[in-house]
């Protein structure tokens, strides 16, 4: 048990270091958007999901756009359903309490590290949990450090702080590119997003564009590779 925890912890350190780089950026952004130190800390521990936290911070303004924010968090984190489902073999034989306790600290990074290790050797869910603890430590230190030193950036516009998130998301989008199958859904998502941005108040363009593109992807897959029924 204990050794699985430590193995998972140490195997996750390399990814955790690159996660910490985003954490630093998130902390600085959060500071510039007026998210308090405590709110960021709470977000880190309670939500513990990078892209969702970036979205929340980005949408953060005086009357908080509650519905848009929660919708966006739900939609961006829907993939955790699949991530959770893919962990079924790892949790075989675990009690429901164990499952409930260990699932909170599942992020893309320790999930990926765990599944690739699971192909090679027999590991327990504590490997995953060790990775999660490793990530949460790096995440807390880096985001809170970014927040604490955020005041050093005096002119956010000229250093293009408002564009940091756009570039990070662009890079992440590129990593989701899945060959030709992605083209049509992405074009549809971009068009719907921009049209909603122009004509629908609030931040709904994120959800509208995202859903329309994803639906196109499903339909496309349905008519192409129909083997799975």
């Amino acid at each position: 048990m204990k050794s699985n925890f430590l193995k998972g912890f140490s195997a996750t350190i390399p990814v955790a270091i690159s996660v910490a780089a985003y954490g630093l950026v998130l902390g600085v952004l959060a500071y510039s958007k007026g998210v308090t130190f405590f709110e960021l800390l709470l977000m880190d521990v309670v939500t513990f999901a990078g892209s969702a936290q970036f979205l929340m911070v980005e949408l953060w303004k005086d009357p908080l756009p509650i519905t848009e924010m929660l919708f966006a968090v739900f939609a961006i984190n829907l993939r955790y359903l699949l991530i959770g489902a893919s962990l079924t073999p790892l949790f075989k034989g675990s009690s429901i309490f164990e499952k409930a306790a260990l699932m909170h600290l599942v992020a893309d990074e320790n999930w990926a590290v765990t599944l690739s290790r699971l192909k090679k050797e027999k590991i327990s869910p504590y490997f995953l949990f060790g990775g999660g603890i490793c990530l949460v430590i790096f995440w807390l230190i880096s985001t809170l450090a970014g927040h604490a030193f955020g005041f050093m950036i005096s002119d956010p516009y000229s250093v293009a702080l408002d564009f940091v998130i756009i570039i990070i998301f662009t890079a992440l989008v590129a990593s989701f590119y899945d060959g030709k199958d992605s083209i049509l859904p992405w074009v549809v998502a971009a068009i719907f997003s921009y049209l909603s941005f122009l004509f629908i108040p609030g931040k709904w363009y994120i959800v509208i564009g995202g859903l329309s593109g994803a639906i196109v992807y499903s339909i496309e897959k349905h008519f192409r590779g129909d083997k799975h029924g």
């Binding site: 993939r79 989701f176 997003s193 921009y194 564009g209 995202g210």
Partner: peptide, 13 residues
């Protein structure tokens, strides 16, 4: 497909 299309919709405007 959602993560990619959502993030894309976020950045386009």
């Amino acid at each position: 497909a959602l993560p990619g299309t959502l993030l894309l919709s976020f950045i386009v405007p």
